[in-house]
């Protein structure tokens, strides 16, 4: 068996992974999402004439509510990607975790600028994981295609979790090398496979 492969990693249960609590969401008026069944609404409220007039106001009201892109959202983007060697998600393998994601203004002394930098620290399942670069690359690709252009993406191997972390980080940070790597058909198919499970 390939020595750089961890055939027997620890797996977390989906119930224990961090999720956005329903209550925080803007759909607060729907209440907690624990209903086993939903009560029927009386017909009066489904009247098209009255509904029409109401909905215009309530919709524009809701518009004023802005949900900013936060760490949990970044986590949700990458946690459902799957590991290239197991049919298990990066979240369940704890390759990515919520505390290892941060969002900061790109220009620290000008926080009013819209530019942001997302940092994601990747924890390979074993010290000498041969696919650490591929995972890092996959995370990078996923974020770059999913975040608005004012976000800078910074993907690195978490300190002390990989034997050749520096080497890998250098590669991940180098725009030219990332771009070149993405032309490689083998890598392309790896990354495509990782992204298939995204929800």
């Amino acid at each position: 068996m390939d020595p750089g492969k961890n055939a027997n990693p620890l797996v977390l249960n989906p119930s224990d992974l961090p999720t956005r609590k329903r209550q925080e969401s803007s759909q607060n008026f729907e209440g907690k999402n624990t209903s086993i069944f939903t009560f029927q609404h009386p017909s009066v409220t489904s009247d098209p004439f009255s509904q029409f007039q109401e909905s215009e106001s309530s919709d524009s009201d809701a518009e004023s509510e802005v949900e900013v892109i936060d760490e949990q959202e970044i986590y949700d983007l990458v946690a459902t990607m799957s590991d290239p060697e197991h049919p298990i998600t990066l979240g369940a393998l704890a390759v990515v975790s919520l505390p290892d994601i941060s969002i900061r203004p790109t220009i620290p002394n000008r926080p009013e600028s819209p530019l942001r930098t997302v940092t994601v620290l990747v924890t390979p399942t074993i010290q000498h994981c041969s696919l650490a670069t591929v995972i890092g690359l996959g995370v990078r690709v996923r974020l770059e295609e999913s975040l608005p252009a004012r976000f800078r993406v910074d993907v690195r191997i978490k300190e002390g979790t990989h034997s050749t972390a520096d080497e890998v980080n250098k590669q991940l940070a180098d725009k030219e090398r990332v771009a070149a790597a993405l032309w490689n058909p083998t890598l392309q198919s790896f990354i495509k496979k990782m992204l298939e499970t995204c929800e």
Binding site: S25, S26, E63, E65, V66, E67, I69, E73, L77, E145, S146, L147, P148, A149, R150, K192, L195, C198
Partner: peptide, 25 residues
């Protein structure tokens, strides 16, 4: 769709992320 990725609403952004993934691949 890049413009939609910065929508103030999360659900819209999510939809845009999925749409871009589908169009890209």
């Amino acid at each position: 769709l890049v413009g939609v990725l910065d929508d103030p609403r999360r659900d819209v952004r999510k939809e845009a992320v999925d749409a871009r993934a589908k169009w890209l691949r």
